[in-house]
């Protein structure tokens, strides 16, 4: 078996998700290569070469792969896929954008967001907003898979894989990058944070999200949100936790002014410890919370900050 992992990277840095995907690849077993595609990604390739269990890092460094547009990246993967039995990527917006294209062009299924490897052909994945776990088996000669990071512990760094360049340059005249507005934050990434504190509609405004800042500072937490808070414009879309947002599983998740709809729970119910702060004692979030605190968040948050 031979596995190709598509590296996830942002701003010239290897993203944490890749080490989780390599862990999934190790669970499948076989030779593991990483593909780094992008522009000026030398540092990414070097970081990828340090991941445990990786044999080879293949680097496609060209302007056409900048911004990870699906059309050229998909075409490149289709070219390389012939050498492998499995193609894996993080279940990130990049992985989800490109892998189905590769699967379709190879006429194989794509298996989304696996959380467990049963064997090289068989995988577990959540369906229906995580309310059921399906075990699926694929007989395709190439398995194209996105991996949910929270299902696999990251591999460590101690490897020294070889690095080689891939010269394939594909044409792309169909799509053009125009611009990107990325949220700037000094806080840890939602996906990898040990503590997450999220606000919902109950926060009332974007301004009030500042009430979470002091607590997040003290706990080294990332800040998340419910869909309602994003839809209302309190905070940007990249903060949404849930079925159709980010999936998190920190040591500690604190939900503030969030009712606990199944779509929100889908994104956080694998957290180790859940705390809910809500003024409605009947709120469904309390059914999954280890510690529930009933009351007004505007009184409780400042008190919590002062007592941490």
């Amino acid at each position: 078996m031979s596995i190709l992992v598509l590296a996830e990277h942002h701003d010239g840095q290897l993203a944490g998700a890749t080490a989780h995907v390599v862990a999934a690849a190790q669970a499948i077993g076989g030779d593991i290569d990483i593909l780094v595609a992008g522009e000026n990604v030398g540092a990414v390739a070097e970081a990828a070469a340090k991941l445990d269990g990786v044999s080879k890092v293949r680097v496609a460094d060209h302007a056409v792969y900048a911004h990870q547009l699906a059309e050229p990246l998909g075409a490149l993967l289709v070219e390389l896929a012939g050498d492998y039995s499995h193609l894996l990527a993080a279940a990130s917006t990049t992985g989800k954008n490109v892998l189905p294209r590769v699967a379709a062009l190879k006429d194989v299924s794509q298996i989304s967001e696996i959380v467990e490897v049963v064997d090289a052909d068989t995988f577990k994945r959540p369906i229906y907003a995580g309310n059921a776990i399906a075990t699926v088996k694929s007989d395709d000669i190439l398995k194209v898979i996105t991996v949910r990071s929270t299902g696999f512990d990251a591999v460590s760094e101690g490897g020294s894989a070889s690095i080689e360049s891939v010269d394939t340059v594909v044409e792309n005249s169909q799509s053009h990058f125009i611009k990107q507005e990325l949220a700037q934050s000094d806080r840890p990434e939602l996906a990898g944070a040990k503590v997450v504190i999220s606000g919902g509609r109950g926060m009332g405004s974007g301004e009030n999200f500042k009430l979470l800042d002091g607590i997040a500072d003290k706990l080294g937490a990332a800040i998340g949100a419910s869909r309602a808070a994003v839809d209302a414009g309190f905070v940007p879309n990249d903060m949404q936790v849930g079925q159709t947002g980010k999936i998190v599983a920190p040591e500690l998740y604190i939900a503030v002014g969030i009712s606990g709809a199944i779509q929100h729970l889908a994104g956080m119910k694998d957290s180790k410890v859940i705390v809910a702060i809500n003024k409605d004692e009947e709120a469904p979030i309390f059914q999954v919370a280890d510690y529930g605190l009933v009351g007004d968040l505007f009184e409780l948050l400042p008190e919590l900050e002062s007592k941490l």
Binding site: G130, N131, I133, V136, K137, S138, D139, L293
Partner: peptide
Amino acid sequence: RLTLLKVESPAERKGGIKVGS
């Protein structure tokens, strides 16, 4: 193309406690 071998319920989370303060 895929064989659905099994569908299970996820591990249930036990509801915890309410704290008073």
